[in-house]
Simulated scan of single mutants.
Amino acid sequence: MANSLRVIFTLFLHLLMITPFIIHGVSGHYALNIGFYSELCPQAESITKRVINEVIAIAPSLSGPLLRMFFHDCFVRGCDASILLNSPIKQAEKDATPNLTLRGFQIIDRVKDALEQACPGIVSCADIVALVARDAVAAVGGPHWEVETGRRDGIISSLNEALTTLPSSSLNINSLITMFQQKGLTHKDLVVLSAGHTIGISHCSSFINRLYNFSVIDNTSDPTLDSEYMDKLKTRCTKDGPNVLVEMDPGSFRTFDEHYYELVSKRRGLFRSDAALLDNPETKAYVETHRYGNREAFFRDFGVSMVNMGRIEVLTGNFGEVRKICSKVNSL
């Protein structure tokens, strides 16, 4: 009997010692959920949608950049709005070369201002970026999906991290798969999210090496690019000419649809990363399945993959903060 009591007492002391750590762990992390702001700011999503619809009605070309911003945010330090932070010495994520062509920061600020007027200090910039991406896609004919919210904003933004963790448009399929897997994303997420290239434009500098110096040995063109399409691109992107803009999905770059997969299947994807989707059996199968349509299935898959991406390394609970101004942390 005495031995039994001693064992029970020892277990009790052990629980007392570990309980504070258990409680601390639970208090710091809460799962994202749909309708996180339903009580504290019930109009958060409707305000965001209203602002974005107004913007896209006037400037539909911003839909692509606003979607791209979410991708670039989540792949560096997770979906924490670190892409929005300014640096007085130009060492933030937005100062990294891959992010210099990002547009739409003023639109995020416009949404934030509207939400701060309605619900001061409640809605995080990280959630705004996620909601804006969804609403920008829907505004140009794309799918609508339920966005999980509850993210908090990070306080660190690093140029060097952006350079090393953002997937490049020139990567081969193995490198792309590895980088996506490191973020908890699948082969399917890769091929589905790549279809974000169905909207928006790109500078010649992002793919010009495919046209003139794909091989460092003899300066030949990329053999995986359709020759007729290449000739058309060369008329826009001359070897030593200006860095002009080119539609990523010619004839459909302002409409979110599955036409991207038809282009990729015909070897007319603008980037090497688009062409790379044909180099893996799983990603190629998805391209071939959707090249002739099946919009409903693609739209459903895109929403699922966007939710998956939106879960990357999020800050919740007591971690991070809710910035008052999206471009700077609250302590500054």
Rank of each mutant, 00 (worst) to 15 (best):
D127G: 08
L190N: 14
R50Y: 09
F299M: 01
K90C: 05
E54Q: 05
V140Y: 00
I208R: 15
T10E: 11
L131Y: 12
T19R: 09
I83E: 05
A57D: 12
L233F: 07
A44V: 11
A138V: 09
S124I: 11
F12M: 10
K90I: 07
N308S: 13
L166S: 02
N213I: 09
V192L: 00
R110M: 15
K232I: 02
S4Y: 13
G200A: 03
E161C: 06
L211S: 05
L278K: 06
L270I: 06
E296S: 05
F105Y: 15
V147R: 06
A114W: 09
V244W: 01
L15G: 07
S221R: 11
F214K: 08
A96L: 04
H14Q: 15
H24I: 12
D257N: 14
K266P: 10
G269Y: 11
T283H: 03
S82Q: 06
P143R: 01
M17C: 14
A275Q: 15
L176D: 01
L270W: 00
L62W: 08
A133F: 07
Y30G: 07
I52Q: 07
C204Y: 01
G196M: 13
N33D: 12
F9T: 12
T10N: 10
L263T: 02
S169W: 00
L100V: 08
M17F: 15
D274W: 00
P120E: 07
P20E: 06
Y260L: 02
A92N: 03
K266N: 15
L13V: 11
F302H: 06
V264C: 03
A139N: 06
